[in-house]
Amino acid sequence: MGVTYDEVVWFSKTFGLFYLIGFSALVLVYVYWPSNKATFERAAAAILHDEDKPCR
């Protein structure tokens, strides 16, 4: 076994914090990356097109 309660708490209070911040930063970079703007705008508009057939 060897893993104590204190060790788990230490891990979650350190690593847990940093991976969450790191992950959030990654998301923000992805969202605001300039070349992604066009993709997002296209996606937002695409659902409004009235096609009703799968693309084959």
Partner: peptide, 15 residues
């Protein structure tokens, strides 16, 4: 009949 106000915001709120 309108696209999402902010697609970026929808991704940020998702995560």
């Amino acid at each position: 009949g309108r696209p999402l106000f902010s697609y970026r915001l929808s991704i940020i709120s998702f995560w």
